[in-house]
Design a protein around this nucleic acid. Structure first.
Length: 771
RNA sequence: GGGCUCAUAGUCCAGGUCGGUUAUGACGUCGCCCUUACACGGCGAAGAUCCGGGGUUCAAAUCCCCGUGGGCCCA
């Protein structure tokens, strides 16, 4: 009998043929039904080359969610988008063309950004395609399209009209190199070397001196109080006294506060407006009058006296000189200081009072907590990340940015009275270059307007992804049947941004939570467990890996390596060895393809045993698939296929399947069981490795795609798994015995079969040539 | 400083809720074997004080407490 499958190994190039078949038959096209299962797929951001291999793994797993849901009989809507707004592409473009955004004409700069985005996007789309992502790739959306931006703007206008947006001047995190405000969620910290200056302050009407250490002496002009810890005996007698600030000669009071650490510096801390977040909080708490020492241009203001006009770093050098020459310096330490920087540009942050638009969030924390607790998290532990974030929210969300590549804030201001006006929702507006659609000022009646130049925080765009994909405000029927969506898959690092902001915005706009489940994935680390980055040189490019090994190998690696919600290591060696399992599956199928398909059979004890183990595997897989945890089925299927089915069962029934020394009925039972097991394995694996399973399925079992099948269900066979251990141990015993006697595996040997296993006697005898 | 999380062979990982044989499997290593599905294979072997300390218990990888070390998040 010739096998239907002739090639000796699974060739990843076959994936292209399978892909073509899927495309030609529009296998994954979505059409609206009464009940739909909508996936709020994360639109990835093209920030540079190569695309992160962890992201490729992430999207593979999201695709497994879609396929699992389809095989559970759901009508799956799996849109694909690309997020194209924001700072990273601006930085990428500045670097690529060696230009600076503010020195470039706005329209020209936007064109260059768009060009960069197109290149990077093409690569990501190609990777998604070759990974077999079964979503809307060919009609993927973009967050910078007119349609998307129009929705961002009209949802803003909606919230504006509801009074959820306001303008306020507040201390804000300001990245003066990029020239923009950033939200708390976008700040990260770097340990940078800096000078800790110990300065002598004098106590008023006394000869006493007090030493105060600071890394920001240039902010002396903004110093409004000195704090010490209430348990610090060194200073307790000074509390309430006046202290003279060096250089400025202003007087401030010394107070106690628990945030002063006895161990840091001298234990006494000068509190300056906007030195850091803690200072801002203290100013609010102690109701101190603020001094603006640093301006929007990143330079010292008039308040800094002689230092006005200097950059903070220059001012620091100069003031240290002046302090020294006046005898105010006790000593200077070189220390490493945790400095707040912009997560994206890595520029140091200054806290500067600025006028920005805010979206109210403080009043809604409780509501968000309630909504959050209704959402099922996979795995549960990541719900805590959201809850922790909700606990730490202390100000409303600043949503305006002084950058170019983003959705424009749709506001025009009256030239004579400055009253802001929003246009009618539904269109895409670019106030920086368009005529005002408003003709008369509602306040003073004037007719001249000036457009807002700022753009939105990118999370304003991405936080409405579930509304955009469900055609909110565009197709009522579609929206009703797809929203709230079923599931939000995403990475764990953006819980406090994307997940939270989406919850907030969607609740404000629709009164409902955007999804019932959230599926959170960990980070892809390098093989040593370090974060991958281009600068460290440990980034792994997914394209050559996928080309060399094929998508299925990569996907199976992802499923079997990534425990749900935890960080995972990306080792090429591990990926390589995963390929062996697909070879095994291929060769098992190749062997079975030499036997006819038999629809039914009368299983013998051995057959019943493997069917019973198969049932256990189905149950195990189901446990994983229900939670969209692919680690569980991947491991279960590999164990079963390799260690029980191939190594033991197939060897036991090989002779029977060939009909050598067995009745036709016994032979057919073996062939029936072999196919039964293999076809079930293929279905169980289909969400994880869609290419090889579909290829084998269509070669052996059907002219329709396996991806139209329902997932296998356990058939409650009699449980014979108590024999498993004894069977495998008996087989091992015979192999060992032959080995130690120097016999070949086909040589005859005499070994007693244990009493318990007597039912399997005939298969054992033919397998081992027992005499 | 706070939170989350992890720690089991050279490497990765299962088991941990619900304590009880000889601690699961894979990769890698070594040895033997081309046995007609598969050398991208088969069989076998070596390899683990289950991070440290204490407690509960007849019994702890598992439960509790205190540490130590990593990763992430927030101040």
């Amino acid at each position: 009998m010739d096998p239907k499958i002739s090639e000796k190994a699974w060739n990843p190039e076959l994936e292209l043929q399978v892909l073509k078949k899927w495309e030609e038959s529009n296998l994954y096209d979505f059409s609206l039904a009464e009940e739909n299962y909508t996936i709020d797929t994360p639109p990835p951001y093209p920030s540079g080359r190569p695309w992160h291999i962890g992201a490729a793994s992430h999207y593979s797993q999201i695709d497994m969610i879609a396929r699992t849901a389809r095989m559970a009989g759901k009508n799956v809507y799996f849109p694909i988008g690309i997020d194209r707004n924001g700072l990273p592409v601006e930085l990428y473009t500045e670097k690529k063309h060696k230009i600076r955004m503010r020195d470039t004409e706005r329209g020209k700069f936007l064109d260059l950004c768009r060009e960069s985005l197109d290149d990077l996007e093409a690569e990501m789309i190609q990777i998604m395609k070759s990974l077999g992502i079964s979503g809307g790739i060919k009609d993927h959306y973009r967050t910078d399209s007119e349609e998307y931006r129009a929705l961002t703007q009209s949802t803003f206008i909606e919230l504006w009209k509801k009074g959820q947006i306001y303008l306020a001047t507040r201390p804000n995190n300001y990245d003066w190199v990029s020239g923009t405000t950033i939200a708390d969620a976008e700040i990260t910290y770097l340990d940078l070397p800096t000078k800790l200056v110990y300065m002598k302050f004098s106590v008023k009407d006394s000869d006493e001196k007090i030493i105060i250490a600071s890394t920001r002496p240039e902010l002396l002009c903004a110093c409004k109080t000195i704090i010490v810890n209430e348990e610090d005996e060194r200073y307790i007698n000074l509390v309430g006294k006046k202290i003279v600030v060096p250089i400025t000669n202003k007087e401030v009071e010394i107070k106690t506060h628990h945030s002063a650490q006895k161990e840091f510096g001298s234990g006494a801390v000068m509190v300056c407006s906007y030195g850091d977040q803690n200072d801002v909080a203290l100013f609010r708490e102690l109701k101190l009058e603020e001094v603006v020492a640093i301006g929007l241009d990143g330079r010292m203001t008039e308040a800094a006296g002689d230092y006005a006009g200097l950059k903070p770093k220059q001012a620091r050098t100069k003031i240290i000189e002046d302090l020294k020459s006046n005898g105010f310096v006790e000593k200077i330490d070189e220390i490493s200081h945790r400095t707040p920087v912009s997560e994206r540009s890595k520029n140091p942050i200054e806290i500067i009072p600025m006028e920005e638009y805010y979206l109210k969030q403080m009043d809604s924390v409780e509501k968000m907590r309630d909504l959050g607790s209704e959402i099922v998290f996979h795995p549960e532990m990541h719900k805590q990340t959201l809850m922790n974030w909700l606990d730490s929210i202390s100000i409303d969300w600043p949503i305006s940015r002084r950058r170019y590549y983003g959705t424009e804030i749709p506001i025009w201001y009256c030239k004579s009275c400055s009253e802001p006006h929003v246009p009618e929702p539904g269109k895409y507006y670019r106030p920086w270059k368009e005529e005002s659609p408003i003709k008369n000022c509602s306040k003073c009646g004037a007719t001249d307007f000036v457009g807002e130049e700022r753009t939105f925080d990118t999370w304003m765009d991405s936080s409405i992804s579930p509304l955009f994909v469900t055609k909110y405000q565009k197709d009522e029927e579609f929206f009703k049947k797809t929203y709230p969506t079923a599931i939000r898959p995403q990475a764990k690092d953006i819980v406090r941004t994307w997940l939270y902001y989406t919850l907030l915005r969607c609740e404000y706009l629709t009164g409902k939570k955007p999804w019932s489940e959230a599926w959170i994935m960990g980070y892809g680390l390098d093989e040593k467990g370090m974060k991958m980055s281009k600068s460290k040189g440990n980034a792994l490019d997914p394209i050559p890996v996928i080309e060399r090994l094929g998508a299925d190998t990569f996907r199976f690696w992802s499923a079997s390596e990534v425990n749900q919600g935890y960080d995972f290591r990306c080792s090429e060696q591990k990926m390589d060895s995963t390929k062996k399992f697909l070879s095994k599956l291929w060769n098992v199928s190749r062997f079975l393809s030499s036997f006819p398909i038999i629809e039914s059979g009368n299983p013998t004890a051995t057959d019943k045993w493997i069917l019973s183990e198969l049932d256990k595997t189905i149950t195990e897989c189901k446990k994983g698939y229900e939670k969209y945890n692919f680690f569980i089925p991947a491991i279960a299927i590999r164990e079963f296929t390799w260690n029980l089915f191939a190594a033991n069962y197939i060897e036991m029934v090989k002779a029977r399947a060939y009909g050598i020394g067995f009745s036709d009925e016994e032979r057919d039972a073996a062939i029936f069981t072999l196919h039964k097991v293999l076809s079930t394995i293929l279905k169980l694996l289909a969400p994880i490795t869609p290419f090889i399973t579909d290829h084998l399925w269509q070669t052996l079992y059907s002219d329709k795609s396996i991806h139209k099948e329902r997932q296998a269900e356990s058939e409650s066979h009699e449980d014979l798994s108590q024999f498993t251990k004894e069977i495998t141990e008996f087989n091992s015993k015979v192999w060992n015995e032959k080995k130690s006697k120097g016999l070949s595996l086909k040589d005859s040997i005499s070994i007693d079969i244990p009493e318990n296993l007597i039912e399997f006697k005939k298969d054992f005898e033919s397998m081992h040539n027992l005499s």
